[in-house]
Design a protein around this nucleic acid. Structure first.
Lengths: 329, 329
DNA sequence: CCTGATTTTGATATCGGTAACAACAGAATT
DNA sequence: AATTCTGTTGTTACCGATATCAAAATCAGG
């Protein structure tokens, strides 16, 4: 930058202003500086800028697992909005482990990120303490927690699960089984279970532990889960797979075993992934606002950082979801 | 840091050393500093550190599209290795646009990343110039380009496509159609086509423009493409879908139309995604070293950055792939 | 116990910018 | 014409660390 200043015959301060606050510099001065910048091929040093101004255009994002197709839409929404404002995204994965998350939060704070996006809503006390102390804005967006850290942009896992279970009940299914991902350190799973149980109660169905299952991710897990429940509770007439592509895996297994869907057993899913629409029978599912979550998260974060919109502190955005009735129920 | 130094009754330099070069500081001194760090809850400022030392622990990654399941495995491999060495990942998406890529490269260079990972292998001359000038190590990993920018960790799209086409030929298919993603600004697609054509030549088949198709991403695109080729070339007996889940989409379409697979038409795919294994018939495909690419990329980059392994400059790592024969061919 | 070698610690400049305020010019006000 | 205001540019200090070299402390050998 010194070089640019010399070449343009001005002070570094003027160069800085010409580049970052064009309004505060005269027209021809700006021209002169930009010319020098071009001639020298000058690249501003963002580290120095952030350090000096104590402002950062980097946002830290922590997801449980990068290779989970579910989050990618949210990341895309985040990324697109942030990019438009010249912000960068630093991404790391916590592996569903709060301690690991804490570690990553520490690293991100060290990097002086301007904001933090956490998919998980379960954090260690130390992590919470550190974030509080740092004072940077945070958005949680995997769920709507009881005690938000700061801001929240999400849908309610409990409500969505409740809605789908009620939907199945209204369609006349009497023995509705429920499968979710493992619920340790995963309050999304826990809340989905709560929604399911609340709906059963509302429907007047008796909950049956044999019809509440947990499993891993992937098509194989879905296959396993439908086989397990058919075996232990033959009279089951519907299975709500509250996780990723479990329902598709279940469907493939049903086809292999010649269990008609939805005749013998109905299947419902969580999340509107492409696959569920294209199998036959197509699978009833919930459409969740994955992309919107990312977009809104970015917007609200930018408002806080750029506009200093302090009234947004602690705000909770509960985005809507939708039950999509298809052939499998 | 000043606070820590005061509290421990030493200079900031000693604090810095105690934290970053423990070997250069006496045992009890280190203890005293660490104690002060804990008491104060001191978080090092990474920006200041990088600025001062002119070293960076941030790696920039540019992928064409974040929501592409194909890349997530690679990102995971990268992420895991980098995390272990205390490096961070900055991710952005170029939207398959070299100009956008150039812009992002500029931003990353401004952030003084320690290394760059590019999935695309097509860059603007200015982008190349800037990277050269910056002197940071770069890895390309979407393909093996003719003229690498620096290092390459990838598999050969051409070779993989060739291998699958030859596989189909050896199985006895005579009319092998080929579908890929749009090839503008996508040399992966272009190379896959080259591999296909080379194999046809080798097999002594006549290439037929009606059997070479391009389409978008997703299951619907796969469905469309199989319908299109069956319509225009009824005697086609195999379709090699060289992109993502196209083959699965094609399979679903075949099932809807009652075209038996592989009886009426055989299907082959690119990339070993879970889905292809679980449909029936299961789909013949290529297993590509997606995770390994990320891992190796990270390793080679770290060698260059940490160990200054200059002999690695310009090295090309061609990772192996594998044809997986399944029921669909 | 002294000398020279080796650690260990500290002082100072610097990395590349921006904040805050000062200086100056020309325009507007009186 | 003197005064005030406004807009533009410059000066200086500092952001929070590390590099570099100097100083002090420790150690070994004679």
């Amino acid at each position: 930058m010194r070089d640019v200043a010399v070449r343009a015959g001005v002070s570094t301060m003027t160069v800085s202003r010409a580049l970052n606050e064009p309004g505060k510099v005269s027209e021809d001065m700006r021209e002169r500086v930009l010319k020098a910048v071009r001639e020298i091929g000058y690249l501003p040093n963002h580290l120095a800028g952030s350090l000096s101004s104590n402002r950062s255009t980097t946002i830290g994002l922590i997801v449980p697992s990068i290779d989970n197709s579910i989050y990618t839409q949210t990341v895309k929404g985040l990324s697109e909005v942030l990019k438009r404002s010249g912000f960068q995204l630093m991404i790391a994965e916590s592996g569903y482990d709060p301690n690991e998350e804490e570690e990553l939060i520490t690293v991100f704070l060290s990097h002086r990120v301007g904001g933090l996006v956490l998919h998980s809503t379960e954090h260690t006390p130390q992590a919470i303490e550190k974030i509080r102390k740092s004072g940077i804005p945070v958005v949680e967006n995997g769920n709507i927690p009881k005690e938000p850290l700061d801001m929240v942009v999400s849908y309610s896992n409990r409500d969505a699960s409740y809605a789908m279970t009620m939907h199945l009940g209204r369609l006349g299914y009497r023995k509705i089984a429920f499968a979710s991902l493992y619920s340790v350190h995963n309050d999304r799973s826990q809340d989905r279970l709560k929604g399911y149980l609340a709906a059963l109660k509302q429907l007047g169905h008796e909950p049956d532990p044999r019809m509440v299952l947990e499993t891993g991710r992937g098509l194989a897990a879905g296959a396993e889960v439908v086989a397990r429940v058919m075996q232990s509770v033959p009279e089951v007439d519907a299975l709500f797979c509250a996780g990723e592509v479990l329902a598709a895996g279940a469907l493939f297994e049903c086809q292999r075993r010649n269990w008609s869907v939805p005749g013998r057993i109905a299947l419902a899913s969580f999340d509107d992934v492409d696959l569920l629409r294209h199998v036959s029978p197509s699978i009833t599912t919930l459409r969740l606002p994955r992309y919107d979550i990312g977009e809104r998260t970015a917007r609200i974060l930018l408002s806080r950082i750029i506009d200093g919109a302090d009234h947004l502190r602690g705000s909770v955005v509960d985005l809507k979801f939708e039950v999509i009735q298809r052939e499998s129920t």
